[in-house]
Design a protein around this nucleic acid. Structure first.
Lengths: 198, 198
DNA sequence: TTAAAAATATACCAATTGGTATATTTTTGT
DNA sequence: ACAAAAATATACCAATTGGTATATTTTTAA
């Protein structure tokens, strides 16, 4: 049975994560947090060390929420190429999926905390690197299973694809126009077909 | 002859722009600004309406500084294709060029002020749209001057190229590794050769 | 049911925030 | 050189910031 404080911790994270995601670390104040939760500072500081600790856990919470449907989608499909197309399809729905939430946590929090909060920034970097590496591995698997061309530079391609994804998310949320994402996904699909597929 | 206050305004902008670019609007405090300039609040508020006004002018200052060498480079070359290659070459040097400055002002300030400062955010959006449109125009010119394939969707390509550029800048500054940019520029060069060039 | 423990609220703290009214200094044109 | 004007500094403001010590309430296990 979940203890009371476990419940409250979860409730605080649920309430607070979108705020940190939208406004960023510095611009989110303790009163933003007490307003959103209708709890007092006492309750919040009883459950989290300080603002930084809460922000880091909120970021992890955001990442989990956002990436869970992706891993589910990837698990449905088998084969590297199918998984790659599943990836672009996931991002085709990404805008609406994270819109209420305030956008992509990696993009938001990385730009926000760079030069500001080293600890939080490191968390973001780590997650981003991991994602890039998963992509690279997926391509490597595709190569060793003869789905993807032998000569392909998996490191380079995964760097480019991930950059393209984040870039299109950035543009989409700046101009509030998801077409940036869908057109980029079309392009990535073409890259998969022309540069990866045997 | 430039008046004293014109000099001071310029001096303040020079000192303050990199700070706004690095830390963002909310995280930059008045004391950051007085520290950087060694001026008092009186002097700053005598030359700028308020923090927001200063931040907007600092952003424009950043953009000017960053884009001037680009327009110069583009003016040297003639023909759409040459200009496009000049563009990717410009971004190949971009990381070192803006590194001390704290990165790309459009990327930084757009993520920073989204959901926070409407006025400043609008300024950024405007500049970004203008850049995207210039790119689109450049491609259109290439088409009408028979340099670029007839069927090319200039709107789409310019959206994608600009997203790729910003995405690679984002990744490069997150991981402090300019290879993200150079590999993306290689990719864009390939796109130019394979999808645009007649 | 009850006492101990855990969780939450209250009331406070010093420091900092953006901003301003006024005093002082510096620049300007004559 | 001088008076007017412009620029800058000083000294202040109320509001808010993140954070904490303590009081109160709620939960938990016996």
């Amino acid at each position: 049975m979940k203890s009371k404080s476990e419940h409250t911790k979860q409730f605080i994270l649920d309430s607070v994560s979108p705020i940190f995601n939208k406004k960023g670390y510095a611009a989110t104040s303790l009163s933003d947090l007490t307003n959103a939760t209708k709890l007092t500072k006492g309750a919040i500081y009883g459950n989290f060390e300080n603002k930084e600790d809460l922000a880091i856990k909120a970021f992890r919470h955001n990442v989990k929420r956002v990436l869970q449907p992706l891993t589910e989608k990837l698990n449905i499909h088998s084969g590297a190429i199918n998984k790659l197309f599943a990836l672009t399809n996931y991002y085709r729905e990404y805008y609406d999926f994270v819109n209420d939430y305030g956008g992509c946590p990696i993009l938001n929090i990385a730009s926000d905390t760079n030069n500001l909060n080293e600890k939080l920034f490191e968390s973001v970097k780590q997650v981003a690197k991991k994602l890039e590496e998963s992509l690279e591995e997926l391509i490597q698997v595709g190569i060793s299973e003869n789905e993807i061309k032998k000569g392909v530079n998996a490191k380079m391609i995964s760097k480019n694809i991930y950059s393209m994804i984040e870039g299109s998310i950035f543009m989409a949320f700046m101009h509030k126009d998801k077409v940036y994402i869908s057109e980029m996904m079309n392009h990535i699909d073409e890259v998969i077909k022309k540069e990866l597929l045997k």
